[in-house]
């Protein structure tokens, strides 16, 4: 393939994607970083103020730090609960039971539904239960926290189970056979053979669950909206409210977004580093390893 070949068709093949990506993503990204150092209410009247916004993020006391801690706690608990449920589902579904495909579909179904819709579905459910005690989900922060956690388990459990099923099916039959002949109990097989062999998938799912939970927005908005008094706000919702709920705080919102970006990007890049060490997993897993959650 000649050089000439490339130059002539580059505009047709690459430029449309590159142009959209640059104009609507890269430029806004750069502009966003710049604006985090500015005071502004629209982009046109931005004045450079240095690190003022960043200082205000931590001094203004509008709950950004709290939302970060809330998000951290929520994400860590999500990682543990979602993956325990997903592993249990995957182990059940790989027992060659009749209709396993139907069950898998049922467990996966919540992932088809959008976050806003899920939030209102659970709103009905949780408030229905709580109304027996004369309260609703906005009554106490712990209710909102548990509601979000249950929703997340329900949504991501089936998703992660699909990844675990693929991993469990890839465990060599000979190894399982050998362990059975050596007299290993089912628990021993699980703990000492299956789990170590699917460890890469466990790490992938752990990362995916963490980033998904930490970046959650739609479900948060629809289920609790941050109530009571912003105590159940995740970072994404806090940033959104700073941008669109407070006059003249756009600079602070943008500074928060940069901090949020750095944390999320750090976490995502951890996955890339891990992949390099973990290459001989087969192509499928290596690919999975590199894909952080979107948005």
């Amino acid at each position: 393939m000649t050089r000439l070949w490339q130059r002539r068709f580059f505009p047709l093949f690459v430029l449309p994607t590159l142009l959209c990506y640059t104009l609507l993503f890269l430029v806004p990204l750069a502009l966003g970083i710049y604006l985090s150092f500015c005071r502004f209410s629209t982009v046109d009247n931005a004045t450079f103020v240095g690190f003022e916004n960043y200082l205000k993020v931590f001094s203004s006391g509008d709950g950004f730090l709290r939302s970060m801690l809330f998000g951290l706690g929520f994400s860590i608990l999500s990682v543990i609960c979602v993956n325990l449920v997903a592993l249990a589902l995957a182990l059940l579904l790989t027992r060659r039971v009749r209709g396993a495909g139907i069950f898998r579909s049922v467990f996966f179904m919540p992932n088809l539904i959008g976050g806003i819709v899920l939030g209102y579905v659970w709103n009905l459910l949780v408030n229905g239960i709580l109304s027996n005690f004369g309260v609703d989900i906005t009554y106490r922060a712990s209710y909102g926290f548990l509601g979000l956690l249950t929703l997340n388990i329900w949504q991501l459990g089936g998703y992660m189970a699909v990844i675990y099923i693929a991993a469990l099916l890839a465990v060599p039959k000979e190894t399982l056979e050998a362990s059975r002949i050596d007299g290993a109990t089912p628990w021993q097989t699980l703990l000492f053979i299956k789990l170590p062999l699917i460890l890469p998938s466990i790490l992938i799912c752990g990362f995916l669950t963490f980033t998904n939970a930490f970046k959650m927005f739609d479900q948060n908005l629809a289920l609790t909206g941050g109530a009571p008094e912003g105590e159940t706000m995740l970072p994404a919702l806090n940033i959104f409210n700073t941008f669109y709920g407070r006059v003249g705080a756009q600079g602070i919102g943008q500074a928060k977004a940069v901090i949020f970006l750095i944390i999320v990007a750090l976490f995502s890049s951890l996955q890339f580093i891990r992949r390099k060490e973990e290459e001989p997993l087969g192509k499928k897993n290596a690919l999975a390893n590199t894909l952080p959650a979107k948005k």
């Binding site: 993503f25 990204l29 966003g32 970046k215 941008f243 970006l261």
Partner: peptide, 29 residues
């Protein structure tokens, strides 16, 4: 170029939501 394209996967939407909305408006999109 492929490396630059990857950036999009690690940037949370909140980072660009304000500026993207602004530029989309300016471009008439």
């Amino acid at each position: 170029l492929l490396g630059v394209l990857i950036i999009g996967m690690v940037v949370p939407f909140q980072m660009v939501m304000y500026t993207t909305t602004f530029i989309t408006g300016k471009l008439g999109l």
